[in-house]
Amino acid sequence: MRSVKVEGKRRSENGKKAARQLRSEGQVPGVIYGGKETIHFSANPMALRPLVYTPDFQLAEIAIDGTTYRCILKDLQFDVVTDELSHIDFLELVEDKKVIANLPLKFVGQSEGVKAGGRLEIKVKSLKVRTLPKHLAENIEVNIDKLQLNGNIRVEDVKAGEMEILNSPRIPIASVVMTRALKQAETEEAKGGKK
């Protein structure tokens, strides 16, 4: 699994005034929680970009005062006016402690319904899972080979190995719908058969 290395500096002062001061110096305040202690730190926004502006699920290795913390991204806050990153939260990974994460779905295969002229519609792009850190993956693969025309793949159809999926099992994540051309062809075929 890919990880992004970030150099951070421990913050001595917390609160709005200290955070405002950090932002004026071009730093992003952040916090790491979930481990033995809560660590308040700041980092360069450019170092955080590969974590923030991507659809991929990645680990963050945050180095602060010679200690590296393995984390996952939990929350982001952006300035309402400038749209710049204003705060970032990470959850430290502890080997024997389950974590909740949103993992992107990766659709593999060629749907039978698409081969028949239908159009694949992706309804859900990620699933919320609970698992131990060692079972985390970059994505969850969903095979769509057997997906028929007007068929659905639901959350309950996804095999996630050691991960417990927290989304409602009946939610459709992908379906193959009829295209307008296919509907038109079927209508003309039906009319032709009546004559």
Rank of each mutant, 00 (worst) to 15 (best):
M1Q: 07
V4S: 07
V6C: 06
G8N: 14
K9A: 14
S12K: 02
S12N: 12
N14D: 13
A18T: 07
R20F: 08
L22T: 08
S24K: 14
E25T: 01
Q27P: 01
Q27W: 15
V28E: 03
P29I: 05
P29K: 00
G35Y: 11
I39Q: 07
H40L: 10
A43D: 11
A43W: 01
M46P: 04
M46F: 14
L48G: 11
R49N: 14
T54Y: 05
P55V: 03
E61H: 12
I62Y: 09
D65T: 08
G66P: 02
T67N: 12
C71W: 01
L73G: 12
L73S: 08
D75W: 06
Q77D: 09
F78I: 04
V80T: 13
V81D: 07
D83V: 02
H87V: 11
I88Y: 00
E92V: 04
E92M: 03
V94C: 05
E95D: 14
K98W: 00
I100N: 04
G109M: 00
Q110E: 00
K115W: 01
L120F: 03
I122K: 06
K123L: 13
K123T: 07
K125W: 10
K125M: 14
K125N: 15
S126F: 05
S126V: 00
K128C: 01
T131C: 11
K134P: 11
H135N: 02
L136Q: 03
E138F: 14
E141I: 05
E141D: 06
E141Y: 05
N143I: 03
I144V: 07
L147C: 00
Q148S: 04
Q148A: 03
G151K: 08
I153W: 02
R154D: 07
V155M: 02
E156W: 04
D157Y: 12
A160H: 00
M163R: 09
E164R: 02
N167A: 02
N167E: 12
S168M: 12
S168V: 15
P172D: 04
P172R: 04
M178C: 09
M178A: 11
L182H: 09
K183T: 05
Q184R: 15
E189V: 00
